[in-house]
Write a protein that binds this DNA or RNA. Structure first.
Length: 648
RNA sequence: GCUGCUGUAGCUCAGAGGUAGAGCACUCCCUUGGUAAGGGAGAGGUCGAGAGUUCAAUUCUCUCCAGCAGCACCA
């Protein structure tokens, strides 16, 4: 762009600077340093911006030249180039396919196509083969800047309507960048590699085809999306594929069957049939939460599952969420609905008495089961269901108490997550959505209260504009699990609206009747979902205090039956969840079966144990065993099985 | 809800236009065996549901239901 050829100074990461003519490209700079760097270079960072080797530099700048050793830049370029190479491969095989967009994502990329015929799994093999051919051609990547009119004309002529639409959506009037790999061309921000041969041909894999809406909008046409994963080396690809296999082994749906925790039926899609083992785990969680909430000053209530339409009209659910509610038809000409939330019921409990400022904050908790008609495609094991139990609570307080109550909830949530080994928690703050009730003023206040509390607690958070609930903004607590996946669990919402809709008041010190502020909060969120998350977090190997069966006492021969029963009785008396296995099977068989079912402790008893009043202890996942006196073992296990909140 | 795929015994899966098979699990018998599958016998299926094509459908076609992956959704 610049006409003058005045020298500019480029500063390298080691602090040295060199002088070049304005308009020099990183490729020229690399060649100036060494011919081997010129070959190996993949891109540059110029003034902190990821920069194509072909882009000119017009002013003084800092510069770093990247090679494949720079993992972050290399991954981005490899994935981005593969997106283009895949699109080119697809269009070479099926020329009538229209291209749309193909961004880099975590571990890989995807590209969305419009093609009448669906891609089959076999097609993926064809495409992959073609991609490797393109890589082997080592086609140089070239780039030009076009003005919009030319770009629009080009795509119109080439029957690529999606690209035209994309250009129309790019704001302003800035020129557009075009990229070529051989003859194939795409509109693209860049940067890209020097040539297709810089992509490692053995470090990528096409993973799946699925539908995806054009521009993410379900009103738009559905396109076909092909996902790929790519890395800078074959070893890294293998490691990633291995990690996926490991994650699949943690799948709570699979473990739920193996551990005999729950199942689903066609007659109740999205609703759980809890088996004895699963229900024990579920109840252990509820008992824990009940203790924590009681200690934090909550009172527990229970409200009806089915309530009249009138209530849901008052709360606003009837107008905002009726599509997603289960309705109950009866012979008395009334419309009922299964509760999708507990809050309206709690409003009625609040309103059933005259509340004084002395009663506030009033913290009403309920392990209420709610029903929501979730879209069929959303259902996923325990993680997304149509009926679930919330550890729900509503805190009624004065405006003055609001920030402090938010802080208390925040502390409680973090403390509880730590008890389950979740130390890595981040927070999302979702603000007023388009569809909402209540005044701007009340939204200002409630969003402000959440921000103030977070800042007072020194918590960092990410804002999600327009993602709040229809009645108020919300905080969402997101856990990162053992293998780096994020799970949204707890939530805290401020609500000025429901108290107003229900005409709720409290008597202030002045004698005035004032509306309380209300907090909605859930810590586990959905008990069903949290159970699923725990199963995946621990890969089924639950900590002792959560394990539904903590001990199985397995006999080696039937001579040990009486003693085994005695051991179980002793354990049960000590509050341990223990069972006998007296079956006529070999100890190997029993050990295998209980190990697969993830029972944390197997006690084998044979002649020696009977004679010496000991147990042979085998821990889940350990090969060696240890023989211990029964009393000693029980004492140690009691300690280990004590829930974290009850430990001294 | 949308796109694609799938649905056969409790589980994991094979099969084929002529009303079905394996392994494990289950029941019984033998076996009393010291830390991840001892041996034998037996029982078990309207092949997801309904309709259509056909002499004949579990197999082919259509509709519905459910599941899986992704998208959209998630008060």
């Amino acid at each position: 762009m610049s006409l003058d050829q005045s020298p500019i100074s480029l500063t390298f990461p080691d602090g040295n600077a060199r002088s070049y003519d304005a308009g020099v490209t990183p490729a020229q700079v690399a060649a100036d340093i060494s011919s081997s760097l010129a070959k190996k270079a993949i891109s540059a960072t110029v003034n902190g911006q990821h920069w194509d080797l072909q882009w000119p530099i017009e002013a003084d700048a800092s510069i770093a030249i990247h090679t494949m050793k720079d993992e972050e830049q290399a991954n981005e370029l490899v994935r981005h180039d593969l997106a283009h190479i895949m699109a080119r491969a697809v269009q070479e095989i099926w020329p009538d396919t229209k291209v749309t967009i193909g961004p880099v994502i975590e571990n890989g990329w995807y590209y969305d196509f419009d093609r009448a015929e669906p891609f089959t799994p076999e097609d993926l093999g064809l495409i992959e083969k073609k991609m490797k051919e393109i890589i082997n051609k080592r086609d140089p990547v070239t780039t030009e800047v076009w003005d919009r009119a030319r770009a629009v004309q080009y795509y119109t002529d080439n029957n690529e309507p999606y690209k035209v639409e994309l250009i129309d959506a790019i704001p302003g009037d800035e020129p557009l960048r075009m990229y070529w790999h051989g003859d194939w061309q795409d509109l693209c921000r860049g940067p890209h590699l020097q040539h297709t041969g810089q992509v490692p041909g053995d470090a990528f894999k096409l993973m799946s085809v699925a539908g995806a809406y054009w521009r993410g909008d379900s009103n738009n046409q559905m396109l076909q999306r092909i996902y790929g994963v790519a890395f800078t080396s074959k070893e890294k690809l293998k490691a990633h594929l291995h990690m996926l296999e490991e994650a699949a082994k943690r799948d709570h749906r699979k473990l739920g069957r193996e551990m005999d925790l729950f199942h689903f039926e066609e007659v109740a899609p999205g609703s759980v049939f809890w088996h004895p083992n699963g229900w024990r785990l579920f109840q252990t969680l509820i008992a824990y939460m009940r203790r924590r909430q009681e200690a934090a000053g909550y009172v527990e209530v229970n409200s009806p599952d089915i309530m009249d339409r009138a209530l849901w009209e008052t709360s606003g659910h009837w107008f905002n969420y009726r599509e997603n509610m289960f309705l109950a038809q009866t012979q008395d000409d009334r419309d009922y609905a299964l509760k999708p939330m507990n809050c309206p019921g709690h409003m009625l409990i609040y309103n059933n008495d005259i509340r004084s400022y002395r009663d506030l904050p009033l913290k009403i908790a309920e392990f209420g089961k709610v029903h929501r008609y979730e879209p069929s495609g959303a259902l996923h094991g325990l993680l997304r269901v149509r009926s679930f139990t919330q550890d729900d609570a509503h805190i009624y307080c004065t405006p003055e108490q609001l920030t402090e109550e938010c802080l208390k909830v925040n502390d409680l949530i973090l403390s509880i997550y730590r008890d389950f080994g979740f130390d890595d928690v981040h927070i999302k703050l979702s603000t007023r959505p388009e569809n909402r009730i209540g005044s701007e003023e009340s939204w200002d206040k409630s969003e402000g209260a959440l921000k103030t509390a977070l800042e007072a607690a020194g918590m960092s958070y990410t804002i999600f504009e327009g993602e709040g609930a229809f009645y108020g903004p919300k905080l969402e607590y997101v856990l990162r699990d053992a293998i780096g996946r994020d799970w949204q669990c707890g939530t805290l919402q401020v609500d000025f609206n429901l108290p107003e809709r229900f005409n709720s008041t409290y008597v202030a010190a002045s004698g005035e009747r004032l509306p309380p502020v209300m907090l909605h909060r859930a810590l586990f969120g959905s008990l069903e979902r949290f159970t699923g998350i725990l199963i995946e977090q621990f890969a089924g190997k639950l900590p002792m205090w959560l394990a539904p069966r903590q001990v199985v006492v397995a006999t080696i021969t039937s001579d040990g039956d009486a003693y085994a029963q005695e051991v179980v009785n002793t354990l049960r008396a000590a509050g341990i969840r223990a069972e006998t296995d007296l079956r006529n099977e070999k100890i190997n068989y029993k050990v295998r079966e209980h190990s697969l079912a993830k029972v944390p402790v197997i006690l084998a008893v044979g002649h020696r144990e009977v004679d010496e009043r000991t147990v042979s202890v085998r821990r889940l996942g350990e090969k060696q065993t240890s023989v211990q006196p029964l009393d000693e073992f029980v004492a140690a296990l009691i300690d280990e099985a004590t829930p974290p909140d009850l430990k001294g």
